[in-house]
Simulated assay, not measured.
Amino acid sequence: MFDHHCTACDKRQLIFPSQVTSLVNTDHGIVVSFECWCGAEQTMLTGRTADHREPVAA
Score class of each variant (00 low, 15 high):
3 D>H: 01
4 H>Q: 09
4 H>R: 03
4 H>W: 04
4 H>D: 04
4 H>L: 06
6 C>Y: 12
6 C>R: 00
7 T>C: 06
8 A>S: 11
8 A>E: 11
9 C>S: 03
9 C>M: 06
10 D>R: 04
11 K>P: 14
12 R>Q: 07
12 R>A: 08
13 Q>I: 07
13 Q>R: 00
13 Q>C: 09
13 Q>Y: 10
13 Q>H: 06
14 L>Q: 08
14 L>M: 06
15 I>M: 08
15 I>N: 02
15 I>Q: 07
15 I>R: 06
16 F>K: 10
16 F>I: 08
16 F>G: 06
17 P>M: 13
17 P>Y: 12
19 Q>P: 01
19 Q>K: 03
19 Q>W: 14
20 V>F: 09
20 V>C: 14
20 V>T: 11
21 T>K: 05
21 T>Q: 10
22 S>A: 12
23 L>W: 15
24 V>Y: 05
24 V>A: 08
24 V>L: 10
24 V>H: 08
27 D>P: 00
28 H>Y: 15
28 H>V: 04
29 G>P: 11
29 G>I: 00
29 G>Y: 01
31 V>Y: 13
31 V>K: 01
31 V>P: 11
31 V>E: 14
32 V>F: 15
33 S>Y: 04
33 S>A: 13
34 F>K: 02
35 E>R: 01
36 C>V: 02
36 C>N: 02
37 W>N: 03
37 W>H: 07
37 W>I: 06
37 W>C: 08
38 C>H: 08
38 C>N: 08
39 G>H: 13
39 G>R: 15
40 A>V: 05
40 A>F: 15
40 A>Q: 14
41 E>H: 06
41 E>T: 01
41 E>Q: 04
42 Q>F: 14
42 Q>L: 09
44 M>F: 00
44 M>R: 00
44 M>W: 01
45 L>A: 05
45 L>E: 07
45 L>C: 02
45 L>V: 10
49 T>L: 05
49 T>I: 02
50 A>V: 10
50 A>K: 03
52 H>Y: 10
52 H>G: 12
53 R>L: 13
53 R>T: 06
53 R>D: 13
54 E>K: 01
54 E>I: 04
54 E>S: 01
55 P>G: 04
55 P>Y: 09
55 P>R: 00
56 V>L: 12
56 V>S: 14
57 A>D: 07
57 A>T: 06
58 A>K: 01
